[in-house]
Design a protein around this nucleic acid. Structure first.
Lengths: 331, 331
DNA sequence: AATAGCACTCTTTTTATCTGATTGCTAATA
DNA sequence: TATTAGCAATCAGATAAAAAGAGTGCTATT
């Protein structure tokens, strides 16, 4: 257990380092505390021994270790109200009744990205709870048509189909058959339902059934596979932080941004609905960053929004922002 | 006018620099030419005086100037066949009959990006020649519905509509009205046609006409504005070239990639249908890169594909690749 | 327990030196 | 006259040494 003064010093060091990105010296701290630099040094030594602080070299000031950030976040950070300016800028988006939900999410995170200089991520998963609402077909010319699929949550998917030597009527018959039998099925179950319910009987109603059946089967297979959406906003903000002042580091993180598997790992591991913070090695993305995320759930879809920045992050501000956005989009 | 030997030397220098990314010395050249390094030096001096070569410092070897690259491209470059490996890798995509055209384009450029380590761009403009084919509406719940718009070229757009206090029948009446009167109209003319043909008479058929009219008007306005699509593949390849070994340069080009106006400027300025090459200052994107582009035109849509790389680019290979892709997608 | 003082450590910056690549020029050669 | 050999001059880049500055850790003192 840390003493009151150690808490105070650790807090000051974390806050100073977040702000100035420079190892913190005993002198800087003793100005704000009514004691001498030597005393602060003694305490710093203790904090380092306990693993909350680190040095960049023998005679440098101290920087927080990951354990230090974690302790700060868990015990020292003051969670205040969302600051006024941040609030106002976001409110412009939330007040706009015109926007669709997905636009609201994207735009609000765009704004957060701009305001904070961090990178934001939206991970949403469309497919899971969507049920097939309606399929329709629009012919384009003799051999081509567009298949439109709408789910009960308003999610739309479309696909070009090229079928030679098949009459439009036959396709329409198939669509009618599917609409009659499969509407209401969760979309990732449609293709298997197609296989067991439609395939055996389609021959009765449709002549060129094999070709048409295959085409639709593929459309639904594609669709259920397409579920995951990754939207990364403000990648270029990476350049603004001195921990990425090295071209190899930048390349590394950019390649991770493009690695879907890595990015999807952000979704994992949250049981609760709160805001979670993963500092450095605590996240699977990159040891040099902190990921702060939360899940959201609306009647249309659910997903995860996350903010990625250096470990030296404005924790309290980001938590406030995420919390506010989550509440607004769930409203 | 350059002498035969000067042509030969310039060509060797450009080719060597493209390959090795290192200023070319007189020695390197005289190995391949039956004359001494002193002779080569004299010629190099002449070529520099004429503006085809540059030095990085007083006693460095020579590198091609932009004028040098331009001369190489116009007069010295041998345009051979597409190389076998490049051909084969692309052919896998073009042979895949399953893929939609837009996927073929994206995937083939993805492959080019991977093979060459350059960045590729697809700029396509959907709206211009598309004519409205069919509008339909799928209700989601009492107040929400999805509007689906399909054009004669198979381009699909959809939008959520929230209308409170309006019956579905009235919306369907409106859609019927629009379908009857506006189908066949180019999509960027639809909203004005709506204003002059539909607005005056809609009141007769639909009660809540104002609200519904406005909703549809907005949908079409949005749609015609959405025409331009920018798809950049292989941004991270920038890291692979030594001209971008500087973090500021990388940041600069990444910010340009995100600047739609800058990227759209790539489309401009081509009258003909050939392949165009813009070296350094010749392009509006960035003085440090070369942009090689061509327009394509299919029955579905038309657009521009481009390859962006350092000025020290494998010109002949890239031209071959672009040419081949263009021909394949226009087939 | 807290502090003042000071030697010590290590980074950063500056300056100097050396090495190697390559040129431009001059004089000799074919 | 065109080509070449030879050589001093130039400059980037690597390596080393020196100086300056920031901040610590320890010891002795309050």
């Amino acid at each position: 257990m840390l003493t009151e003064r150690q808490n105070e010093i650790l807090k000051l060091i974390v806050m100073s380092y977040i702000k100035l990105a420079h190892p913190v010296s005993s002198n800087l701290i003793c100005d704000k505390l009514k004691c001498s630099s030597a005393t602060v040094r003694n305490e710093m030594m203790a904090l380092e021994e306990l693993g909350y602080l680190e040095k960049t070299h023998t005679s440098s000031g101290r920087i927080p270790s990951e354990k230090g950030y974690r302790y700060y976040v868990d015990h020292l950070m003051e969670v205040k109200e969302l600051n006024g300016e941040d609030y106002q800028k976001l409110q412009i988006i939330f007040d706009n009744q015109q926007l669709e939900l997905s636009d609201v999410i994207t735009k609000s995170l765009q704004i957060v990205s701009d305001m904070t200089s961090y990178t934001t991520v939206i991970l949403d998963e469309k497919s899971h709870e969507n049920k097939l609402k309606e399929i329709s077909v629009v012919p384009i010319n003799e051999s081509e048509m567009v298949v439109l699929i709408v789910t009960d949550k308003g999610y739309v998917e479309h696909k070009d189909l090229r079928l030679t030597g098949v009459s439009l009527d036959e396709v329409k018959n198939t669509v009618k058959l599917i609409n009659d039998l499969v509407v209401g099925t969760p979309i990732d179950e449609v293709s298997s339902k197609l296989e067991f319910d439609i395939k055996p009987i389609i021959g009765k109603y449709v002549k060129q059934h094999e070709m048409i059946y295959n085409a639709f089967y593929n459309v639904f297979e594609d669709m259920s596979r397409k579920g995951n959406n990754i939207n990364i906003v403000g990648k270029n903000n990476v350049f603004k932080h001195k921990e990425f002042n090295d071209i190899d580091k930048v390349q590394d993180i950019f390649e991770k941004f493009d690695d879907d598997e890595k990015m999807l790992s952000i979704k994992e591991d949250t049981q609760n609905n709160d805001i979670s913070i993963y500092i450095g090695k605590e996240n699977k993305l990159d040891d040099d960053v902190t990921v702060i995320k939360t899940n959201y759930k609306t009647d249309k879809d659910n997903g995860t929004i996350a903010i990625i920045g250096p470990k030296r992050m404005e924790y309290s501000r980001v938590v406030n922002l995420l919390d506010y956005i989550k509440k607004q989009i769930e409203r």
